[in-house]
Design a protein around this nucleic acid. Sequence first.
RNA 1: GGGGCCGUAGCUCAAUUGGUUAGAGUACCGGACUGUCGAUCCGGAUGUUGAGGGUUCGAGUCCCUUCGGCCUCGCCA
Length: 595
Amino acid sequence: MGPDGKRTHHCGLLRAEHAGAKVTLNGWLETIRDHGGVVFGSLRDRSGIVQIVFKEPPREPLRPEYVIAVAGEVRLRPEGMRNPDLPTGAVEVAVRELAVLNPSRPPPFEVASFAQEEPNEEVRLRHRFLDLRRPRMQRNIAVRHRISQLVRRYLDEQGFLEIETPFLTRSTPEGARDFLVPCRLNPGTFYALPQSPQLFKQLLMVAGFEKYFQIVRCFRDEDLRADRQPDFTQIDIEMSFIDETDVRRLIDGMLHLLFKSILAIELPLPIPAITYDEAMARYGCDRPDLRFGAPLTDLCALLADSEVPFLREGAARGAAIGLAVPEKGAFTRARIEELATAAATDGGAGFVWLRRAAGALSGPGAKAFKGAREGALVEALGLADGDLAFILAGGNSPALRAACGALRTRLGRELGLAPAGKFAPTWVVDFPLFQRDEERGGFTAVHHPFTAPREEDLELLERDPARVKARAYDIVVNGVEIGGGSIRMHRREVQEAAFKAIDIGPEEARARFGFLLEGLSYGAPPHGGIALGLDRLAALLTGETSIREVIAFPKTQRGSCLLTEAPAPVSDAQLMELGIALKPPPGPAAPVSGS
RNA sequence: GGGGCCGUAGCUCAAUUGGUUAGAGUACCGGACUGUCGAUCCGGAUGUUGAGGGUUCGAGUCCCUUCGGCCUCGCCA
């Protein structure tokens, strides 16, 4: 070993062909197995694990997670002592020299590759540097890297330019809550961290770059979820002189490349599309999980003359839905009632349920389907033997659909209806442009206020905004929204008309988005784009259910980082410099001290 | 802001209906051992039961408050 102990080889790459080689390895000691006369260790670096052997006891104490350098000779292991579970299992390194580069305190949890007990997430996040040392996390982070690199190369080959946009920018109080950053140079003013580079990428199109992309951090101050962090990463794309199909084919190709490179799965192209209306009708959800069937079935016609009052009345109001799943007796009666009750409550409806077994219907709902109606129900729902069916009726149609959609998702999860390893990507298209704002009245943009309406709906913009369809598209895989985008309005008049439809007057539009309107009036080309959630994509491709598993340093549900303990108070001096005074915390007045 | 689950040794968990000194595996410390590979064997030490309050003869267990983690509804153009 040289004086610096630098490695000549990587642990996980040693093979029989290296036998006889003099090597120096650096890494972390995974385990130490001391037999008195002979001592074995497993040495780990990023590439993997190899066994090291000390024929004489090491002079320094060795413990798990010590960082060491060893020099010695690669040897074939004696016959019968190979380890078939290890890629390096045919060899071992006989150590002649050892240097402890750095000892380690006993780790709070086992880092070793064989460790089965998963420490709880709080402990993992508090010691994230150790958690990330575990093989699973090493792999996840490496896959994420692969995705980024593949995407960069793909888009570069397609002629895209990677262009950065500012993080310190202007608050545009549409959409999510902004994170604000006080500006010292102009007391009382604030930057906002971008919710997305939306306006900048459109202006880059005005600027004539034609094809832009960026793998970029976005910031939204909203509540967290398993698939939502306050700062998250988008693959952001914008193109000029294109239509919806161009964007979709571009992303089809990107996903095909990613699935092939990372999972060795050949996605059939083109990725199919379903309209928003169809998704809502069949799955009660705008991001349906198409890995399994169990579509919602409209039973209004079948139930129009039902003897059961609530079924008949629901059908008359256009709110009667049936749903069948291959349950095969997996649920208890109580569980079925629980699931149905929850859905019925959410949908403002009543319910019955029944089973089909040995060709006959049974269960509390069976008596509502006697005689001819039985066959009609079996056919309508495609009821097979072992199926469980829910029939919900009442309330209003959209609410009932949503409730049934949630029920379907839940049944899919609890019954394991989605085959493992299956991926069902789909585009969702023809979204409405606007939705009613229940709180404030009027309309808000479904996607964002820069999304173009369909050409044929332009005249509806003023007359009947609810019926305007958007040139927007979401890409959904296995019930997860991976990304979404739209063709934008590139003509100023259309953009202003759209603002008007969502009650943004000319002054307000100028104040908030003046620079965009300006840009649009100087020869903006037709353009559109999309943004994909890199975190969600990485979770999907690693098989993780939370994006925290593919983010090196994620935040908890309360938005704090358990490692750095951010967010944290700042000093009075810092606040003073920024011209910021904190209000006293709310709550009961502090008791008078003393006496 | 609402609903749900959870918090016991460094870690993963147990602890009967509220009842003796809160246990186990693992990690840790000491010892033995020349072919293990999650080594084995012998021995040892390890607790603010998240925190605070209450009920009770007695609380890990019941009640209230609070802190923290997770899931979820709202929210997330």
